[in-house]
Amino acid sequence: MKKMRRWVKQWMTERMELPADVMMDLPRITMVGHLHIYIENHRGVLRFSREEMRLRLDDGQLLIRGEGFVIKTILPEEILLEGKILSVQYVFET
């Protein structure tokens, strides 16, 4: 049933050209150079250190690596991270 719903949503976003982040609760990531990264629709912090941050998402994890990380703001569904961002990686849970 859950798979069915997801399939319907995906079909709708593809066919009706609706924004994917709204329809499917996907994270929306905004980066300003390597200085800032702003993530909406996250599901909590799994790991945070100076060099690494792992965020929980609906269907996996977001792994951000870099140097000198500082969480500037954190709200239930938004997070603003500052520092030198080297990589942003999507990790799918299998």
């Binding site: 909590g44 250190s49 100076r50 990380f69 500082v70 969480i71 500037k72 954190i74 709200l75 239930p76």
Partner: peptide, 17 residues
Amino acid sequence: FINRCTEKRLMIWDIRQ
């Protein structure tokens, strides 16, 4: 602790290790 704070709507900022 960070996750709990956001859940309870506590303002928390400038977090660093």
